[in-house]
Amino acid sequence: MKRSPMAILWNVLFYLFVVAIVVYAIFPFYYAIVTSFSTGTALFEIHYWPKVFDLANYKNVLFQRQFPRSVLNSLLIASTTVILALFLAVTASYALSRVRFRGRGLLLMVILAVSMFPQIAVLAGMIEMIKYFGLFNTPFAMIISYTVFTLPFTVWVLTTFMRDLPIEIEEAAIVDGATPWIIITRVFLPLLWPALVTTGLLAFIGAWNEFLFALTFTLSEDQRTTPVAIAMLSGASVQEIPWGPIMAASVIVTVPLVVLVLIFQRKIVAGLTAGGVKG
């Protein structure tokens, strides 16, 4: 196939632009990787390429006390949060977007109000409640608080997306006598994949990265999550910050997320084509 020089030029420009975006996004991460290979005084020197390939920091992190356990905790907590949040949000969004009743706008605003308080301010009340239910120092303390604080976002996004789906798809199902539950699971879910994967991913990352609640609600090392575990990485004294291990740990915890994106992106790409819905 022949292409005009103009098209080639545009193509080149386009790819340059893509490269620029990628460099912008990953350079700090790349620098973290470079840093994670160096130790001691070498940390305080500037290198654009890894000077040595020393895995000491990685060994240090992976064999340190409970780090692998923290990764498992985070995985468990974040996945459960996503499943719970998506389940609650999909049903709620269906009601909020497809069924007409009074006070929907107000209800959405009330839900939004949950994201309007600074985290630090609700901590005291959260501790009281977590203790009241006997959930202190268990994964449920985190699962419940993350689910609730991610719900406003998830509900809002899904409501917006569901509202924009054409009316015809539902009508056919209703005529067939399908219950709302069937409509949600059979008709909407397949169409909502891009939105579900996106919000699910964002909720996952939110739970994966949360620090303040995780630090406050846990005591034992075997209950802690990765951000807390990273904050626990330390140098030989109070004043020393262990840059090498911190960078190594950050690289380790970022990898699962990259893998997740790679797995789910087919779903993101699939988009509306699956449903074959007419615009």
Partner: peptide
């Protein structure tokens, strides 16, 4: 590319803030 774009958001804030503090340091910041 799509996975790469997501990396900044995927790094825990406490870590990326420290990472940037490191990069923004006046004497040995990159």
């Amino acid at each position: 590319v799509r996975a790469a774009i997501l990396i900044p958001w995927a790094i825990p804030t406490i870590v990326s803030a420290k990472m940037w503090a490191w990069m923004l340091n006046d004497q040995y910041g990159i």
